[in-house]
Amino acid sequence: MRAVVLLLGGLLAAGTALAQMSPVGLWRNIDDKTGEVKAEIRIAEANGVVNGRIVRRLAKSAKPDAVCDECSDDRKGQRLDGLEIIRGARKADGKDVWEGGKILDPENGRDYALRLTPQDGGKRLDVRGSFGPFGRTQTWVRVE
């Protein structure tokens, strides 16, 4: 009986660790230029595809009713709180990397190619947005 309990406990712990090596969850994004915490973003998965929305903005300069004026697609005029900024990323075969989707920078309304890479046992997430050979990476921190 004790062996069964230990086995089940080990399987639960392993499952939790594996789940953490995923971009799914609540994250705080930190501006790579200023070091300021800007927002909390919730990333969710459905049918193997991850998408993410701004839950709330935390930047000191955030205006409560701000909308995406710079967006040129269906997100134009939508409130920034609740705005979907990550669309369509999928897990790469055999890697702990999600790619193939797009990430929106609501400050300029542009979509960038996206790559999400969990780090540090899933406590951090490298979020890379790129356009051709150019891009930048932010490290987001998981909200426990």
Rank of each mutant, 00 (worst) to 15 (best):
D105K: 07
K123C: 02
F134S: 09
K91P: 02
D126V: 04
G82R: 12
T34R: 10
R90L: 09
A19Y: 12
R110F: 08
K60I: 12
T137A: 00
G132D: 03
E144N: 05
L8A: 09
S22T: 15
Q78D: 11
K76P: 13
A113G: 06
L7R: 02
E84P: 01
K38R: 14
S72F: 15
A66H: 06
C68V: 11
G94Y: 01
G52E: 08
L114V: 00
I43A: 09
G94Q: 00
R124A: 13
N29E: 14
G135W: 03
V49N: 09
L6K: 04
G15R: 13
W98P: 03
G94H: 01
G10S: 08
L80C: 09
L7Q: 00
S22Q: 09
E99P: 08
D111C: 04
K95C: 06
M21N: 14
R90W: 04
L83V: 13
P23A: 08
E40T: 08
E40W: 01
V141N: 00
T137V: 03
L80Y: 10
G9D: 01
T137F: 00
I43T: 06
V49W: 11
P64N: 05
K91I: 07
D93S: 15
E70D: 14
D74Y: 12
E144S: 04
D126G: 08
W27R: 07
G109N: 10
G129L: 02
D96E: 14
R57E: 14
